[in-house]
Every structure is written in structure tokens, then in C-alpha cells.
Write a protein that binds this DNA or RNA. Sequence first.
DNA 1: CGTATTGTTGATTGCAATCAATGAGAGTGG
DNA 2: CCACTCTCATTGATTGCAATCAACAATACG
Lengths: 232, 232
Amino acid sequence: MRTQAVSRYVDASPMPTAVAARAADPMAFDRPSFPGVVRTLGAGETLFAEGDDADSAYEVTSGLLRVYRLLAGGRRQITGLLPPGRVIGIAPDGVRDCTVEAATPATVRRYRRAVFERRLDAEPGFARRLLTAALEDLHRAQEQALLLGRKSAMERLASFLLQVPAMQDDGDAIVLPIRRADIADYLGLTIETVSRCFTRLKTAGVIALHAASSVEIRDRDRLGDWADGMAD
Amino acid sequence: MRTQAVSRYVDASPMPTAVAARAADPMAFDRPSFPGVVRTLGAGETLFAEGDDADSAYEVTSGLLRVYRLLAGGRRQITGLLPPGRVIGIAPDGVRDCTVEAATPATVRRYRRAVFERRLDAEPGFARRLLTAALEDLHRAQEQALLLGRKSAMERLASFLLQVPAMQDDGDAIVLPIRRADIADYLGLTIETVSRCFTRLKTAGVIALHAASSVEIRDRDRLGDWADGMAD
DNA sequence: CGTATTGTTGATTGCAATCAATGAGAGTGG
DNA sequence: CCACTCTCATTGATTGCAATCAACAATACG
């Protein structure tokens, strides 16, 4: 039952089940010989900030982190929304180049620089796995550049909704774990524009909005058309 | 002499001297045991295209490559401009996710997948160097996202001019190896807007335009102010 | 020297930002 | 349980920046 799935999310965990499952492995850094220390973050809590000394890397184990950079006048660009399984904070030069906060209540496993280095030397293939992960991040960054540089507001939101399956409950019912402000800053828009685009998609019958944070994708194909600028 | 430096660029190589120097090493993949095959590209020539099978990686050895993605309606977003020393094309999944062309006449060294793999296994630390390079790319991508998502046209162009030292002749005389169309597609703008911004910076006395491709930075600090939105 | 390509400038339009209220929940305390 | 408040989201009116449309200028090139 869809409703049940949603309430399960609300009751127990900040992330839908699909994500909890993903959290179980993909990267799975934790090893007895290279222990990660679990840290719990409340919503909005900062993991680290731009300019800080970087002496650890982190793997997201639950919740959602937001990575961002700030500009004069308080302008913010969110460059990443990290679901469980993603790694953040490897900084060869020792200084943080972005700020990371919990967008929802979250947990991470922390790996101290020394432990990380030791493992890079001891475990052949570890650097390679990290390389693959970094290249995936790079691909996502490229995708975001395309979105920010060349897509209209409607295309941005539609692309976003299609790309969020990371936080998706199956059955096309999505519970967005983040607020309009985060979506706006991720898409390079304002909250008003994001809201208007939601309304337009709803009016077009492509999505249903049960609550501000509960979106149901009614017609995935047509949403894809919006994302590609093939609809109007 | 400044003029000499510029003419040296025009006469001999598509890249100014500073870059030729950089080309000598930073990454320096070439090893007798892991040979890279040199390939020469004419201006506009394609190295590989989105969707192609990926069986090689490349190191830029001269010139400038442009990395881009396309959207419906011919919209193009350039996600990277690669000077000598940069590596492109490592694709664990075997499929190209972007197109790479020579923005100027260029040369690259090609490393076949098999050679690359062999080296990853044989040379400890190679994967780590690649990881560091990928993380640097990631940082640049983040910077670009900030620019595309939150900066005004003037801020974008000013940031671009300050960040191009990769192609810079010392003495603040820059010969831009690329056309307005490339700058526009890199900055998420149109050529008209780029042109207007150049004119405004020139009128403000911050830069001088000797020719369309020859820009001289007259006041680096004030250009920095423009880049940060602190000028008007 | 003529043609093609690239760059600049001007006029106008249009999309998203900004400014300004209003509405909808969630949590609190009476 | 119901005001009350606080935060977040939606909607409306207007502005403003950059895109588009349209000439025109400059440079490269055969």
C-alpha cells in the first residue's frame, strides 16, 4: 500500500525504504581493520564548512546531506544532495572547499585521514574504487552544469523530479525529504519559481501534490518531455 | 616584451608560453613502459563523442580541448576547457558521457584501456594520482555550478577572465584561444551578452581589448570586484 | 578585392527574480 | 480543543536582466 509506505517513512526513518536498502552497501567502506566512527547529525547540522581543515572523509549511512557554496549577498548554490552510500570530504590539499550539512536527520561514518591513507596503501583497489566514485560525482556535476547553464525552470524541476529516484518510494510516490529552499538552491532558482513550476506540472496532470513534500509522478513519460523541453 | 610573447603565440603554437611550460609535466603520464600514442587534432576536430564506446583515456599535451553536452534545440553547455596537462576520458562504464573537441589545434597522448588498466595494477600510486586529478576536476565543476547557478552575466565573465590564467601570458596580457561562442557556452550565456559584458569591462577601464581575442587585464583587483558582484 | 565568418551594437521580448500578500500546517500553551 | 505563532509554501503584481531578433562592423581568407 502506498499510504503505508509513506507513513513508514514518516514514522521511522528520514529516508524512504528504497534508500535504506541502498544504504546497506554500494560503497561499504566499513571494515574491522579500517573502522569508521558513526556520527549522528540533526537536521540542519553542519558536518564541515568551507575553509575548515580537512582531516576526515565521510560516508553517508542514512538521511541526506547537502553540499553547497556561498556567494556575496547570501546567494547559495547547492552542488550536491547526497543519499546513503555516497562519500564526501576527501581533500588531498587539506582544506574544505565547500560546506556540508544534514538536509534531514542523518548519520555518517567518519574516517580519519590517517586511517584513510593507511587503507589506500594497504588495500590495492581501494584508490580505484574511490576513483570510480569520484568519476561518478564528476558525471553528476556535468549533468548539473548542463541543467544550470542551459535548461529552463520547468526543465530543471522536471529533470530533478526524474533524477531523485535516489529518494524515491517505488510506485512513483516520492516523499521529498527537502524543502523548497533546498530545491531552489540546487536548481539555481528561487522558491517562488520552484513553487510555480510545481503548480504548472500539477495543473498539467503530470504530478500530484498531496502535500508540499509528497509528490506523486502520474505520468513519467510526459514528465520526461518536460525535462527535455518537448512539452509546453 | 609583451608583443613578442603574443606574436610567438600567434606564429608557433595555439597556446601561450606559460601553458607550453605547464604542458611539460604536471601529470606526465608518458612512460616507456606505458606508452601513449600522440594524436594531432585540427581546430574543431572531435576526439570522441557522447555515446561512443570508451576504450581510451587522453592527456592533453598542447592546445585546448572543449568538453560539452548537448540539449534539444542545439543548446550546448561546455563543462570544461582543458589546457595541457589535463586528463580526460576515463570511463569505467565504457561509454562516453560527453563530447570532446579541439577548441584550438591540439595534441593529445592516447592511452588504451588495456594499457591503462595494466598500469593501474602495476604502479601503486597511479590510481591515487588519478583520484587527486579527478577531485580537482570535481572542484572545478563545483565552481562552475556556482557560477552558472548564482552569478550574473558580468560576474561570470569577470570570473572567467580571472580563472583563465591557464592560457595566460604573464603581464596580464591574455590571448584568448577561443571564440565568443565557446565563452558563451561555457558561461551559460549568449554571444551577444558576452560581447556586451566585454564592452562594459572595457568601458570601465578594467580590461583593454586589442582585438577580439586579445584581452589585457588592466586592473586585476577591480576585475575581482566585478567577479564578486562588488562593483557596478 | 569580394565573400564568409565572427564580433559588436541596438531594439524588443520574455522568463524568472523580486516585492508583497495570503494560505496552510506543525507545534505550543492557554 | 482551540487560538496563537512560526515556518514554509503558494499566488499575484511588477521589475529587470539576459535572450532574441535584427542590422551593421570588422576581421580572416581565398
